[in-house]
């Protein structure tokens, strides 16, 4: 187990290092180079030259990369030139809120999608079945923002029972205090994920239905319900956990859109506002933090898989 952990964490570190390289290179493709990216579009040529010299941007690329990385290691992500605040403190404020949003909507989505997927996998041709299958198919093709707009039109305009605006509180506690405002953003995220998750669950169940152990369970006298909800479910969870690991970047992209529609004060909104004003320190800092979060997330998914599936556990013991 320690060997597996060491190997997997080593891989994750390599990936994080590669991500820093990508972000570093992005910084250098900003028109006018990092100086303009950091000082903002209004900076004068003299200021840029002074800045470049002061920060060592006139040195060789490897040297600059080393400086950049050692800055990162000290938690230094630079400072926003539109918000006059350090990027790390901005992100620190915002990221818990984004995690709450994605976490809750993923949870809701799983609670709906797992039974739905199992049911689809065991489908019997019928009107309800076609109806739900079509619905899932359409859900899969619907852009999140369109979905969010429909929710707004239905629940905030036609039947005005929920607020359009997400809570604007500074703290997490404040966020939950105004929980009605959380409903629509979470719902939008959840519906978008249900379509994807239930498709995965459906194919996992279909794969498992063809397995020999299902026949054994039936031959023992187990009921169909027991076969599906106990024997098959248990074996379908491993691919679902693996899928969650893969889906993390998609979930974060979804959060970006949802936050911008509902004005939810998370990383996504911060990022979107920064994109409108070309605030590069925020943009690149956020990319880095989100990428690291994704790497950590898929690491956790891998370890979790090992705990659920005795075969995986056996292979890495």
């Amino acid at each position: 187990m320690t060997r597996f952990l060491a190997k997997r964490i080593g891989q994750a570190l390599v990936v994080v290092a590669l991500v820093t390289v990508i972000v570093f290179l992005l910084l250098h493709t900003v028109p006018g180079g990092p100086a303009r990216g950091i000082l903002g579009p209004q900076a004068t040529a003299a200021a840029i030259a002074a800045f470049n010299h002061e920060h060592g941007f006139d040195r060789s690329l490897p040297e600059q990369y080393w400086m950049y990385v050692s800055g990162l290691l000290h938690g230094d992500l630079g400072a926003s030139y539109t918000l006059n605040q350090s990027v790390s403190s901005l992100i620190e404020q915002r990221i818990p809120k984004t995690l709450v949003l994605t976490g809750l909507s993923t949870l809701v989505a799983l609670l709906v999608a797992i039974p739905l997927g199992v049911w689809q996998g065991r489908r019997r041709k019928g009107l309800t079945d076609y109806f739900i299958t079509t619905l899932v198919f359409i859900g899969y093709a619907t852009p999140v923002f369109f979905l969010a707009l429909i929710l707004v039109i239905v629940f905030a305009e036609k039947i005005p029972i929920l607020p359009v605006q997400a809570p604007q509180a500074e703290t997490l506690a404040g966020l939950f205090a105004d929980s009605r405002g959380l409903v629509l953003p979470i719902l939008a995220g959840a519906i978008a994920s249900v379509a994807v998750f239930s498709r995965y669950m459906r194919s996992a169940v279909l794969d498992n239905l063809a397995e020999d152990y299902v026949r054994t369970a039936r031959a023992k006298g187990a009921s169909e319900r027991r076969v599906v909800w106990l024997h098959i479910m248990r074996n379908s969870l491993t691919p679902i956990v693996a899928m969650l690991g893969y889906q993390l970047p998609v979930l974060f992209s979804g959060a970006l859109v949802i936050e911008s529609v509902f004005n939810y004060p998370g990383m996504g909104l911060l990022f979107w506002n920064a994109a409108q004003t070309s605030d590069y320190p925020i943009l690149l800092g956020a990319v880095l933090v989100i990428a690291v979060a994704t790497v950590i997330g898929s690491l956790i998914a891998d370890i979790l898989q090992a705990f659920i599936d005795p075969r995986v556990r056996g292979a890495i013991k």
Binding site: Y213, T216, K220, G221, H231, N235
Partner: peptide, 21 residues
Amino acid sequence: IRGAEVAMVFQEPMTALNPAF
């Protein structure tokens, strides 16, 4: 009847047992 009156043993003992239990 299944299991109580008539029981079966299959070809592939690897796949015939549920790997998760």
